[in-house]
Design a protein around this nucleic acid. Structure first.
Length: 431
RNA sequence: UCCGCGAUAGCUCAAUGGUGGAGCAUUCGGCUGUUAACCGAAGGGUUGCAAGUUCGAGUCUUGCUCGCGGAGCCA
């Protein structure tokens, strides 16, 4: 008997096949048993009619519980009444592992219970859809940069010191060398890479020990950070908007089914086409004032402020040239106004907030050194980084995109904890 | 860290200071087209922990633990 996956059913209409999977749900009506099978590639309703199967098989249908591992055999038929459009006229049922009392039932559950059972929750159709979209986004990220001649050059996860000096770091002992820290950004290493290879990107997990407790923060999250030599802030924004358009359109094209499962309003995603609006920090402050917000010039935009600004547009908006005081030490000052940093934040629409933070980097040795001193950073730890300005320094720029925030936005979720298989948050590090 | 809310059956939730219930799940029975199927029955409880007020506490008070929502910080 030919063993196939549910995703390939269309090719086997009228043929007898076997599928291995798990019992997702079960319904019955008199002499009929409807077993809904999932195999990771899709869902299939298997119909067992009492007159077509042995009494043993029919009894088994009643006996096995949700998530039992099973092997079903029968004839594939097109069936408009069934979800997915196909159905299995089943004749055999082989139980590989009988299961009872599976915790996650078809009714509602609370978030604490679901998070405690994250390892099982991942089997639910909604979580499967999110993971497939996450994977498609990761693939789009890699394809985009690979196709543009970027080299993937990953940064270390164990680092000797803070990359930015502000965020709190996870600390660990490192043999006889004292403390090491889990990286909070691969950027500084990406800069070294850009001066070696021209165009690079890092893509990996990063860690922040901030005691953030919101729907937009994880202590461990994935970030992709491109870095380009001979690029300025405008080049950086050009790259960011092309990148985001590519990601969103890839998901729209290839994960329509999953977006439907999530009941995502895709008309909002279809708007994500170049060019994106570009406004300065000053213009953003004007928008806030027009909307009656009491905003003190010089502060960073809060979550509510970001929502007001992004609600003015139907696609991501790029806010550039922030006051340098609220931005990181390595960002280059605007030559036309040294109080401003050549930074850009990309705010996702629909209130999803910042998904990208980027900048043109300070490429002048003396200015960078003075910033390091202003921020009270240990100069010795940054000597290698200063070397990048000692030897062949050139204008360069890059940005970081938070993967989980991007998945949250594209999936239309209200919390990013569902976008990573096993979220790490301030009050949770299990399972 | 700060502000607010919560913890009752395996799960989701009810219960005026006065005999702790329902739906789902489970078990049993019924139905030849179910779509979170439906109908009937049964089993299932140290009301988060500790103390206090009261004739009497799931309910009121205090402390603790755990969690949720929001803020700040950020991607």
């Amino acid at each position: 008997m030919q063993k196939i996956y549910i995703s390939d059913l269309a090719k086997y209409v009228g043929q007898e096949i076997t599928i291995q999977g798990w019992l997702y749900n079960k319904r019955s009506s008199g002499k009929l048993r409807f077993l809904v099978l999932r195999d990771g590639s899709g869902y299939l309703q298997c119909v067992y009619f009492k007159g077509n199967v042995t009494p043993e098989v029919f009894d088994l249908c009643d006996k096995i519980g949700q998530e039992s591992a099973i092997e079903v055999t029968g004839k594939v038929k097109a069936e408009p009444r069934a979800v997915g459009g196909y159905e299995l006229d089943a004749t055999h049922l082989n139980v590989l592992h009988e299961t009872h009392d599976y915790p996650i039932t078809p009714k509602d559950h609370g978030i604490e219970f679901l998070m405690d059972n994250r390892h099982l929750w991942l089997r639910s159709s909604r979580q499967v859809a999110i993971m497939k979209i996450r994977h498609r986004i990761v693939k789009a990220i890699r394809d985009f940069f690979d196709n543009k001649g970027f080299t993937l050059m990953d940064a270390p996860i164990l680092t000797p010191a803070a990359c930015e000096g502000t965020s709190t770091l996870f600390e660990t002992e490192y043999f006889d060398l004292g403390k090491a820290y889990l990286t909070q950004s691969g950027q500084l290493y990406a800069e070294a890479g850009a001066l070696a290879l021209g165009k690079v990107y890092t893509f990996g997990p990063t860690f922040r020990a901030e005691k953030s407790k919101t729907r937009r923060h994880l202590t461990e999250f994935w970030m992709v950070e491109p870095e380009v030599a001979f690029a300025d802030l405008n080049d950086d924004m050009d790259l960011a908007e092309e990148f985001l358009e590519y990601i969103v359109q890839s998901v729209l094209t290839d994960r329509a089914e999953e977006l439907k499962t999530l009941e995502r309003d895709t008309t909002k995603l279809q708007c994500v086409k170049r060019p994106f609006p570009r406004i300065s920090y000053d213009e953003a402050v004007e928008i806030l004032k027009k909307n009656g917000v009491e905003f003190e010039y010089g502060n960073d935009l809060g979550a509510a402020d970001e929502t007001i600004v992004s609600n003015q547009f139907d696609r991501p908006v790029m806010v550039h040239r922030y006051p340098s005081e609220v931005k990181a030490f390595y960002m280059k000052r605007d030559p036309e106004n040294p109080k401003l940093a050549l930074a850009v934040d990309v705010l996702a629409p629909e209130g999803y907030g910042e998904i990208i933070g980027g900048s043109q980097r300070e490429d002048d040795f003396d200015l960078l050194l003075s910033r390091i001193k202003e921020h009270n950073l240990p100069q010795a730890a940054f000597e290698w980084y200063l070397d990048l300005r000692r030897f062949g320094s050139v204008p360069h720029a890059g940005f970081g995109l938070g993967l989980e925030r991007t998945v949250t936005w594209i999936c239309g979720l209200d919390h990013l904890r569902e976008t990573i298989p096993f979220p790490r948050m301030i009050y949770r590090n299990t399972p």
